[in-house]
Structures are given as structure tokens and as C-alpha cells.
Amino acid sequence: MISGLTIAIGGIGPAIAIGLIASKAMEAIGRNPDAAPQIQTNMVLGLAFAEAIAIYSLVMALILKFV
């Protein structure tokens, strides 16, 4: 129960963040398609940082579940 809540609540923020990052990156590519490779690299970087928060809560949930 607690571990389920940990990942459920912890996933909300990163989900919003990843959605915002991807939507802004797509917007930027739409405005300037020539810059797509650089935008994609930076987007992946931003996604990695946002996703890390979700991974922290995932690790906590797994520790609560299995240890």
C-alpha cells in the first residue's frame, strides 16, 4: 500500500515535467526544423533530469516492497 502510494504520488510531478519538456521541444522543432538534432539532445538531457525524480520514488518503492 505505502509502496504503491510512493510511486503513484512520486510519478505525478515527473509525468507533468516530461510532458511539458516534450511539448516545448516539439514546438521548438516545429518553429525551426533545422535545429532538430540539438533540440533533441537537450530534450533528452532534460528528460533524464525529470525522470530521475520518478526513479528516486521508484527505488524507494522497491526498497519498501522488497526489503
Binding site: 525522470e51 530521475a52 527505488v59 522497491l62
Partner: peptide, 16 residues
Amino acid sequence: LSFSFRLFGNVFAGEV
């Protein structure tokens, strides 16, 4: 911490 947890979390979550 963020380097190690990110990699471990992703791969271990995949295993699970």
C-alpha cells in the same frame, strides 16, 4: 547519487 540511482532504478525496474 543521481547518476547511480538513475541507472540502477531504470535497469532494476525493467527486471522487475
